[in-house]
Structures are given as C-alpha cells and as structure tokens.
C-alpha cells in the first residue's frame, strides 16, 4: 500500500509526513513527527489525553486521520510555551499542583488554552463542562479547575 504525502503546519512550523490512509493523526504526531507530548489513553475519543487543535478547533487527535491534516494548522502541547517562556496555563498548573502523574496534563493544557482563547472569562461551571472530555484519574479535578480559573484571571490582567 503506498503512503500518502501530507503537508501541514505544526506549532507554527511547516511539517510534512507520509502516512497510511487509516493512520490516526495521533499516531502520526507521536510516531512520525516524534511529538510524544500528546498521549493515547483510549484511542476512541473518550479520554482527551490526545487533545490538539486543528485550525484552532479542539479535537481528539485519535479520532482524526493523518490525511485529514492536509493544509491544516495543528497545535499540540509542545507548542503552548513561547520558547522558554511558559504560557500562563502551564505556570498555573504547576503553581496549583494541578497534576499528579501528569499523563492527562498535555490534553488538559491544550483544552484549557482553547477554552480561554474562546472564552476568557469562564464560570467554574463553564470550565467544568468544557473540560468534561478530559479525564483525570489522579486529582479529582479540584486543583485543575483552580488552575484554570487562576490562569483565566491572569490572562485577563487581573493579577497585574
């Protein structure tokens, strides 16, 4: 079976890869582009560990085919920080101890950033429902929600 050539932008940089027709974008990111920050917790769209943005939209990369990325812009956890400056959501996750094992963290950070890009001033309930597709088995979500709300406040300039 011949492979398909795909041209995309990943975290702001041009990227090309060859993939099988049935290969998921998550597998492409992890195996071909060596971006192993996105995790596979289920492979069926139920855990959110593989969350990325595709043309700005939050998606489960395990449910997207590699070939669907043609001409699109991909954002992963590896692209959240600006060089060596962490994004406020990363800083707040660390300050609030919003991770224990850290396996859900990449997906949660991508999802949180997408939330705050879309809604800079979410209520706690809005944050909880937005993140309902990202499972965390370690934290009980308390510190995650605190980190998200604090990051939102920080990004609105309320800590200045």
């Amino acid at each position: 079976m011949s492979k398909i050539h795909v041209t995309t932008t990943v975290n702001g940089e041009p990227a090309e890869f060859l993939c099988e027709a049935q290969e998921s974008l998550l597998d492409v990111l992890r195996d071909q582009l060596k971006l192993t920050g996105s995790k596979e917790g289920c492979g069926s769209g139920d855990c959110g560990a593989c969350s990325i943005t595709l043309d700005g939209r939050l998606v489960c990369s395990c449910l997207v085919l590699g070939v669907e990325a043609e001409g699109k812009t991909i954002g992963t956890v590896e692209g959240i920080a600006n060089g060596d400056t962490l994004h406020p959501v990363q800083v707040k996750f660390l300050e609030h101890a919003a991770l224990q094992c850290g396996f859900c963290t990449p997906g949660l950070l991508v999802a949180t950033k997408a939330l705050l890009d879309a809604n800079p001033n979410p209520t706690e309930t809005e944050a909880r429902f937005w993140l309902a597709g990202n499972l965390c088995r370690c934290t009980g979500y308390d510190k995650i929600i605190r980190a998200v709300m604090d990051a939102a406040a920080e990004m609105r300039g309320e800590h200045a």
Binding site: L35, T36, G37, E78, I80, L86, L99, G102, P106
Partner: peptide, 11 residues
C-alpha cells in the same frame, strides 16, 4: 513539573 507541562516527560 516543566517536563510534564511541556510534553517532554517520557512515559
């Protein structure tokens, strides 16, 4: 921490 919020941590 930083490894885990930047996707560098190796599971």
């Amino acid at each position: 921490g930083i490894d885990k919020v930047t996707g560098k941590a190796l599971f």
